[in-house]
Amino acid sequence: MFTVRIATSDLEREDAYSVRSKVFVEEQGVPIFLELDDFDNTAAHFIVYSNETPIGAGRFREINEGIGKVERVCVLKEYRGKHLGNLVMHAFEEHAISTSMNKIILNAQSYAVPFYEKLGYVITSPEFLDADIPHRAMEKVLK
């Protein structure tokens, strides 16, 4: 059974960091000093669990009044293809709506653009590099 929780303890935050480290640092080669940053101290961290095992993560932060930013969305390789990205994105959107936000922005790795487009996000930038990985800025207006 898969569940998404917002971190409320140091242990849950460490679960999120562990998943992010495995995906972004070990798998994709992002330097740890770029992956973990000062925004981690204030962002809401979402963790996807399979029973009590952390298997996915992402963070969310308000960047302007009414606008939230989704960042660091990832799922461990062995759990991909199980629609867990949809699960965590739905949790982000519910959180944004519950905190009176009306727009979500994100920077998607270019290969993932079709995933976000299926969820209603639209491209708002040309391709750019972040940590030497091609990205596109995207956004979704919430109803």
Rank of each mutant, 00 (worst) to 15 (best):
E71L: 00
A91Y: 04
P114W: 08
K103I: 10
H90W: 06
V70E: 09
A91T: 05
V75C: 06
V113E: 12
N86S: 15
G85V: 10
G81R: 10
G68W: 11
N86L: 13
A112I: 12
I105A: 00
K69R: 15
L76Q: 04
K69S: 09
R80H: 11
L119M: 15
L87S: 05
I97G: 00
S98N: 14
V70R: 04
E71G: 09
G66S: 00
R72F: 01
H90V: 12
K69M: 11
C74S: 09
E78G: 08
N107E: 13
A108K: 03
M89Y: 07
A112Q: 09
P114I: 10
I105P: 03
N102A: 05
V70M: 15
H90F: 08
L76V: 08
F92L: 10
N102Y: 10
L106H: 02
S100Y: 14
H95W: 13
L76C: 07
E93R: 03
I67L: 06
N86Q: 15
A91H: 01
E78R: 13
V75F: 01
G85A: 11
H95R: 14
S110C: 11
I104F: 04
K77D: 14
L119N: 08
P114G: 05
L84R: 01
S100H: 15
M89E: 05
Q109R: 01
Y79D: 09
R80T: 12
E94M: 12
M101L: 11
K103F: 01
M89G: 02
G68V: 06
L119P: 06
V113Q: 10
I67H: 00
M89P: 02
V73K: 03
V70N: 06
Q109M: 04
